[in-house]
Nucleic acid binder design. Structure first.
Length: 427
RNA sequence: GGCGCCUUCGUCUAGUGGUUAGGACACUGGGUUUUCAUCCCAGUAAUCACGGGUUCGAAUCCCGUAGGCGCUACCA
């Protein structure tokens, strides 16, 4: 059978992260079966249109690498088509006009039975539990129900892949296909993605759009990988897999039936995995593209090997390195993570030792000095170096300590330690 | 309210009649790095929603209940 899938968002806002998964699955099915993937814009509700949304959707798909073969097809440009078919139903007696709209007449008895691809589950709806519904609105635009049936028939979409919120209206669609004398497609209703409160993921949960994740420094491949696994397990059991590997392994039959909670922490972990896996050169390139207004893009490269294992998102690069160019802001709670009781005195001691080091500190001397000091003051070596790290940078995670000081310069490092020792614990 | 779907560690999940219920994230502890991170090892964590069956034996099959969620628009 010829496989044609489509992603059919309505342009009522930015491309939501949940839509990314729907688009991805439709894309994977098309590619796996050497079929066609189409983008269709469902802009039939004139009141809810949001300017810029189509661009955001297309940009998101492009960024993610989910290239469509056909479209975008705009439903708003096909009004006559829908009207023609709606009138056809009026002629055949399956629909009627009322208040300037065309309504579908729901059969009084009988039931609709279909098998959803997801979970191969058989689903039944009694016609008596359904009501007549609008096909063509009085403004001449079709409702989702009419537009879906007409378009997916004309486009020969099969299977129809959409979110599970559509499941309750599927009998309407199947009845419509039947009224037209058309064969209904197979349906795959993808379970919802939930927020931490287990309700449908939305902006209320802080759920962002695809392009916002991009702005936050997430990688397209990590987003794709994470979203794919939120509701699907590949037969190989792999957790990290590329788009090509997903295409190879994907089958709607392995998509889960239960909804899944979106977990940002795991996404961050996965993004970090992708960053660490990348070559230094590639990561440098990505950072330069990401940090468009970085004051010195040529200085990013040398820092990459130092921070690669410490960042989870591209945006973390800034957090990790801005202490080099900017005076850090100190927060007592960061110091409190170190289990040293008399931190002020230790800081003063560190300051003294640093003064004695003179100019051009050497790595081995530096390390021996503070290891000895730790022994002398009876504190853990790890805590000693961590305290220096925080005094110099204001942060508990930085590039390697000695390298950080080298980049910063001995004078500046010393100045900061002195300053901290003096002010502690009142910043 | 009506209709529908769902229910294994906190989260993502493996599991299709016999497993010490496995893995991943997170968390905790330890090791490597004389420092953070990375990496490695270990550990905590699911009476498989609950109650009945069927069976020698059930997370797995059947029935029921509860809870959660979704839909219930001339929105999609």
């Amino acid at each position: 059978m010829n496989i044609k899938t489509r992603f059919a968002p309505s342009p009522t806002g930015i491309m939501h992260i949940g839509s990314v998964r729907t688009a991805l699955y439709a894309y994977l099915v098309a590619r796996h079966n050497k079929g066609t993937f189409t983008l269709r814009i469902e802009d039939t509700d004139q009141n809810r249109l949001v300017e810029g949304s189509v661009n955001d959707i297309i940009d998101s798909l492009k960024w993610l690498g989910l290239q469509f073969d056909e479209g975008p097809i705009y439903q708003s440009e096909r009004k006559e088509v829908y009207e023609k078919y709606a009138r056809e139903l009026v002629s055949s007696g399956a629909a009627y006009e009322k208040d300037g709209a065309i309504w579908f007449k729901l059969p009084e008895d009988g039931k609709v039975i279909f098998t959803d691809i997801i979970g191969s589950r058989k689903i039944e709806f009694e016609n008596s539990s359904q009501k007549d519904f609008v096909l063509l609105k009085s403004d001449g635009f079709p409702t989702y129900h009419l537009a879906h049936v007409v378009d997916d028939h004309l486009m020969e979409t099969n299977p129809v892949i959409r979110a599970e919120e559509w499941l309750p209206s599927t009998p309407k669609h199947i009845l419509l296909f039947k009224a037209f004398g058309w064969e209904a497609p197979d349906y795959a209703h993808i379970p919802l993605i939930l927020g931490t409160d287990r309700s449908k993921l939305s902006k209320r949960h802080g759920a962002k759009g695809a392009t916002e994740f991009r702005k936050d420094g997430f990688l397209a491949e990590a987003i794709l990988n994470y979203m794919a696994l939120l509701g699907w397990t590949p037969p190989s059991g792999k957790e990290i897999l590329s788009l090509d590997e997903m295409i190879e392994e994907f089958d709607l039959k392995n998509v889960h039936i239960a909804p899944a909670v979106f977990d940002l922490t795991k996404l961050e972990w996965m993004n970090g995995e992708y960053i660490r896996k990348m070559s230094d050169m590639e990561l440098t390139k990505r950072l330069q593209e990401f940090l468009v207004d970085h004051p010195a893009p040529e200085k990013i490269g040398p820092l990459v090997p130092l921070i690669k294992e410490r960042i989870k998102t591209l945006a973390d690069f800034v957090l990790l390195t801005n202490f080099i160019t900017e005076e850090p802001e100190y927060d007592l709670s960061v110091f409190e993570k170190i289990k040293i009781v008399n931190q002020k005195q230790v800081l003063e001691k560190i300051n003294e030792e640093m003064q004695k080091l003179g100019k051009d500190w050497k790595s081995d001397v530096f390390e021996k000095t503070f290891k000895d000091l730790a022994t002398e003051l009876d504190i853990k070596v790890g805590d000693m170096f961590q305290l220096i790290r925080i005094a110099v940078s204001g942060q508990s995670v930085t590039p390697p300590l000695f390298e950080s000081i080298q980049i910063l310069g001995e004078d500046e490092a010393l100045k900061r330690v002195m300053n901290v020792a003096k002010k502690f614990p009142n910043f």
